[in-house]
């Protein structure tokens, strides 16, 4: 029994890492613009699908992964430039609806380009399971975990240690004041979208060998990442990471101990409970300001 729970934990942390990366993407764009970007899941899908396609076109796997990440980051940038920027001055709700439209568009393009089947990406270093204290672990899970740790650390350092990262934060805290110190808010927004898209792409590429990918793989991953961001307190990047891990573990435990059919229901119930009892998220900033 204990071994089983350990197994669920390992699975949960792996899946949770992916949610964490997607949630982090949500938090970055939300931070820069107060907008929830519902195309975030599509970035994950685009990363995975274009890596698969580039691999099929003959590129070696590492190169395909890097190119797919850059390509997706470019898509994020273009999305900001040609869909979000023209609606400058529109309300947050309008902008959110634009991102939903963009998500549907990207899904459509993906289905035209790559069809509707689930496609695999080969595991980065084989499929020989690793035994770890009674739990079985795919080598790819280690890639997921390692990749997540590195990316989260990089983003954390970027936001807290660099002037550019703090400027990004300043835009979210007080856009007018950010403009008054000379921050080009438009460029910051492009940066946030590019970064989020790249982050999503890496998540998609890391997890594709385990879950496969298809044109609609982004829907559920996007929703889970969004949930992670909400649980962690939207706008708190490291909260989103914690929220993702928590969500993944709960889901795995629920699937293992109750029924795998309830996996998603358990995750979303948890989100509802969090919103009910702690509306600003578990690690959200309490909304209080001195005037």
């Amino acid at each position: 029994m204990l071994e089983q729970i350990f197994q669920f934990l390992v699975t949960g942390i792996t899946v949770g890492s992916i949610y964490a990366l997607v949630g982090l993407g949500f938090a970055l764009i939300y931070n820069a613009s107060d907008v929830v970007n519902f195309a975030q899941g599509e970035f994950v899908m685009l990363g995975a699908m274009s890596a698969i396609a580039l691999l099929a076109a003959g590129l070696p796997l590492p190169l395909a992964a890097i190119a797919a990440t850059l390509l997706t980051a470019l898509v994020g940038l273009l999305l900001e430039r040609f869909a979000i920027e023209p609606a400058k001055g529109a309300s947050v709700i309008t902008t959110i609806i634009i991102t939903i439209g963009a998500a549907i568009f990207l899904r459509g393009v993906a289905s035209l380009l790559w069809g509707k089947n689930s496609l695999p990406l080969p595991a980065f270093s084989g499929n020989e399971p690793i035994q770890l204290g009674g739990a079985t672990l795919l080598p790819q899970s280690l890639w997921v975990l390692g990749g997540t740790v590195v990316l989260v650390a990089l983003i954390h350092a970027f936001l807290n240690r660099t002037l550019l990262g703090k400027a990004l934060l300043a835009c979210s805290v007080n856009r007018a004041a950010a403009q008054l110190v000379g921050i080009n808010v438009q460029i910051m927004l492009r940066l946030a979208y590019g970064l989020s898209a790249g982050l999503g792409a890496v998540a998609g590429i890391l997890v594709a060998p385990i879950t496969f990918s298809s044109y609609e793989a982004g829907i559920m991953l996007g929703l889970k990442g969004f949930s992670a961001a909400i649980v962690g307190g939207i706008g708190n990047p490291m909260g989103a990471v914690a929220g993702g891990l928590l969500l993944g573990v709960l889901e795995a435990l629920g699937a293992g101990l109750v029924s795998s059919g309830y996996k998603d229901a358990i995750a979303f119930m948890f989100v509802l409970m969090v919103l009910f009892f702690e509306p600003t998220g578990l690690f959200g900033h309490k909304v209080a300001e001195r005037v």
Binding site: K166, A167, L169, A170, V173, N174, A177, G182, R290
Partner: peptide, 17 residues
Amino acid sequence: QVFAPLSVEDNLRLGAY
């Protein structure tokens, strides 16, 4: 309109953006 969640020092640094 200071950047409330940032430190005094970071606010000044951003002033020098």
